[in-house]
């Protein structure tokens, strides 16, 4: 296998990349109001996590991290399915997926 990548690219570069992606996703969750885009931003955050896990795993030569990524992907798919179902349900009632319209519950 080509080991050159591990020698020439520092792992910190991957960590920075994942952190930036994670932060972008976080910003999106806080900034956007369309529920479906929120869901996408959460997926983006999860992908940042995946990348980080994979990087650690490859650099440390440990397979556990990659399996963790596998499980994250699998479960995220299930979560996305349920989330989209909730979204569709919401859309049926309000004709919108804007979360800022959801303020019926106030104390």
């Amino acid at each position: 296998m080509d080991n050159s990548i591990f020698n020439s690219v520092e792992i910190s570069q991957y960590i920075y990349l994942s952190c930036v992606l994670f932060a972008i996703g976080l910003f999106g969750v806080l900034y956007r109001r369309n529920a479906i885009v929120l869901l996408m931003c959460i997926e983006l955050m999860l992908n940042a996590v995946n990348l980080l896990f994979a990087a650690f795993s490859s650099y440390m030569g440990d397979n556990n991290g990659q399996l963790f990524v596998f499980f994250i992907m699998v479960v995220a798919a299930a979560e996305a399915a349920v989330g989209l179902a909730i979204l569709v349900m919401m859309y049926r009632n309000t004709r919108s997926t804007d979360v800022s319209l959801m303020d019926n519950l106030k104390g």
Partner: peptide, 14 residues
């Protein structure tokens, strides 16, 4: 109920 579900879901996933 819809609002609760969507909030719970988004918060949970987040």
């Amino acid at each position: 109920g819809n609002e609760a579900a969507i909030k719970y879901f988004l918060m949970g996933a987040f």
